[in-house]
Simulated scan of single mutants.
Amino acid sequence: MSTAGLDGARDLLDAASSIVVFTGAGMSAESGIPTFRDALTGMWENHDPMTLASPEGWANDPDLVWAWYADRATRVRSVTPNAGHLAVAELGRRPGVTVTVVTQNVDDLHERAGSVVTSHLHGSLFAPRCQDCGRAESPDVAVANPRPACPLCGSTLRPGVVWFGESLPSGDWLRAENAVGEADLMIVVGTTGVVYPAAELPERAAAAGVPVVEVNPDSSAVTALASVRLAGPAAQMLPDLLMDRRRGVDGR
């Protein structure tokens, strides 16, 4: 990315007071977390994604589906937040600015980096709940195997992710909508911009005249909406974005 691109993005950042950081799979890929389909290797390579990520698959074989998500949660716990996650957390600590993190990712790397995540649009690996009474369980339960029962009603726990055919969590979606409606800058990191309804959020920001900074090594559906595109990985571009252009140190 050219200095001009970084300078343009820094100008937008300096002028902003309410920022939405919207992240996708590319953000976590740099920590070694594969995308859903890329994770279908080894013992999982012969399974249809719909078998592992749909209400029908859960109804047919809940033990298999639970084991898949327990394996994914275990793998996530073996990696650490990357420099991009840490930069988002640092941005959130800057005085005079409100930063809202909205993510499509089901991992907890933003939280472990120090950010408060306002919306997990596609749920979280670490938010298991009872399928009947809705009781939320400890994140540690997400890595348990075999599949545990709800301690309140005795029914089965289910993974806390959004499956194909399910609606997004209404509270998370509403909080994301409200944040975008109040934003004066949106930073979109590592998403293709083709998964709806989440992809509506940068579209709404751009339609309202809110500047959009895209951070992505590859062009995406967001590129046409972006005021500035930082063509590189999040672990490089986000720390560079926060670097004070005059002093060569993190701006505060």
Rank of each mutant, 00 (worst) to 15 (best):
V117Q: 01
H120P: 07
H122D: 09
S124T: 15
L125P: 04
L125I: 09
A127P: 03
A127L: 03
G134W: 03
P139C: 04
D140K: 07
N145W: 14
N145H: 15
P146T: 14
R147Q: 09
A149Q: 02
C150M: 08
P151M: 04
L152I: 12
L152M: 12
C153E: 05
C153T: 00
G154Y: 03
G154W: 03
V162M: 10
V162K: 10
F164E: 01
F164I: 05
S170R: 07
G171F: 05
G171A: 06
D172H: 15
R175D: 14
A176P: 11
N178C: 06
V180R: 07
A183G: 02
M186A: 12
I187E: 03
I187S: 01
V188D: 06
V189F: 12
T192K: 12
G193N: 12
V194C: 02
Y196N: 14
Y196L: 13
P197T: 01
A198C: 09
A199Y: 00
P202M: 03
A205P: 08
A205Y: 03
A205G: 02
P211A: 03
V212D: 00
V212T: 01
N216L: 09
S219D: 15
L225Q: 11
L225A: 10
S227P: 00
S227G: 11
V228F: 01
L230Y: 07
L230P: 04
G232A: 10
P233S: 13
P233C: 09
A235W: 03
A235K: 09
M237I: 00
D240F: 09
D240Y: 06
L241G: 00
L241K: 04
R245H: 04
